[in-house]
Write a protein that binds this DNA or RNA. Structure first.
Lengths: 226, 226
DNA sequence: TCAAAAGTGTTCCGAATACACCCATGA
DNA sequence: TCATGGGTGTATTCGGAACACTTTTGA
């Protein structure tokens, strides 16, 4: 099936590891904006839904399961691409902090990289800087009323890891004891039988997200709040 | 300029009057879905931004200022239109409760109507029922943390009118004194020198939305909450 | 004078906040 | 034994929720 030459699907994919929030960027090796960083993207195919195009854009670049994906915004500005008018349907996604590998690039990209959101190049290709800004705002807002933050962590995590992640995403300091109490009060995470190890210091209790409990709560419209 | 035959812009426009939340629907007089209710919509032109297309879709049907307009969602399902694949970029808008007239219809629509959201026909054309559902959810959510509700009221309004509107939009009963206190505490509305009249009972103090105060608050990131 | 709409204060309870020390472990 | 990371309780404050009667006006 052929592509729509006028509709692109671009994705802002976030990951969290080593106490940093990262976004997946590629370096373009074709015109326009050759050499500049950009978001992964593809042209929509004529028989393809945009969600699938977003997944396809990522499949070229990473080998991981996408834990969360939602539509972000559709930009219809006339001159955002110097070649011709291209409409961008943008997506916002999260991946689990599991081991995963990035590919070496493809025909569009000389390489693919996780970039710390605090170290994003000032000029990205097209209007991708604005799209990224929008995605960051959405992530920071949404993480506060829906438990999507868990999607960025591995299956088992300590309360400290969860706490650190929220601090880093929200760029805000808050009290660890109050955070713990609040998180536990929702009953959305449950103890596992496992503990951390392989590091100095006391072993940590590992928890997991209780999906069952969440879907139950979601039905009655109760919202997670940090 | 020609249209993109594969991209539609559809709008869910809300109004509030006579203690009811209403949505603008047209009755189609062309195929497909002839005779059924649908959302106002147009095909995107090749040199037109989607926001402008949304305004154009409304200009055919109403003679009022659109007080608020934001993008809702882009639907890319393959078979939502029986003729061919058409992508819909949907918008969500609000109009002031001023005097305004609806037009008599145009080539696509035999008539245009404000329909109470509690009396929406069960089957709308295309997937417009789902779009409308999404818009209602967005309105009900957003009205609780951004002061967009004011866009539905005339310039001057009483606290009772404001209170009734929130009750009706949110379909929830709450205490009028608590509501008043909360609304006043933001300083977002200010007394005018005018009072209601022409009805039985005590004259009511008329208030207006303080836009200046709002933009000031918005800068520092303070949010209105009901 | 009565019906209709407008206006207004206080108490109570629960949640958010502020705050600091002990525990377990491996090097 | 010490450096590192994990774990936990209480007092105070503030905001949300519950609750009912008086005032003004025009018919």
């Amino acid at each position: 099936m052929t592509n729509y030459p006028n509709i692109a699907v671009d994705v802002v994919l976030f990951s969290y590891f080593e106490k940093a929030l990262n976004v997946l960027l590629i370096q373009r090796n074709i015109a326009p904006f050759i050499g500049q960083y950009a978001l992964p993207g593809v042209f929509l195919k004529e028989d393809e839904m945009a969600d699938n195009a977003a997944l396809r854009a990522l499949k070229d670049e990473t080998n991981v399961q996408i834990a969360y994906l939602e539509q972000l915004y559709t930009i219809t500005d006339l001159h955002r691409d110097p070649r011709q008018r291209i409409i961008s349907i943008s997506y916002f996604g999260l991946v689990n902090q599991n081991d995963f590998t990035l590919s070496d690039g493809n025909e569009d990209a000389s390489f693919v990289e996780w970039v710390n959101v605090n170290e994003i190049p000032t000029r990205l290709a097209f209007d991708h800087g604005e799209i990224l800004e929008m995605a960051l705002t959405r992530l920071r807002t949404k993480v506060q009323y829906e438990p999507i933050g868990f999607e960025l962590l591995p299956e088992w995590f300590t309360l400290t890891e969860l706490y650190d992640m929220y601090r880093i995403i929200l760029q805000k300091e808050f009290d660890r004891r109050n955070f713990t109490r609040k998180v536990m009060s929702y009953g959305l995470i449950k103890k596992t039988e496992h503990k951390t190890g392989g590091h100095v210091g006391r072993k940590g209790q590992l928890y997991e997200f209780d999906l069952e409990r969440y879907t139950e709560l979601a039905k009655t419209g109760v919202y997670f709040e940090i």
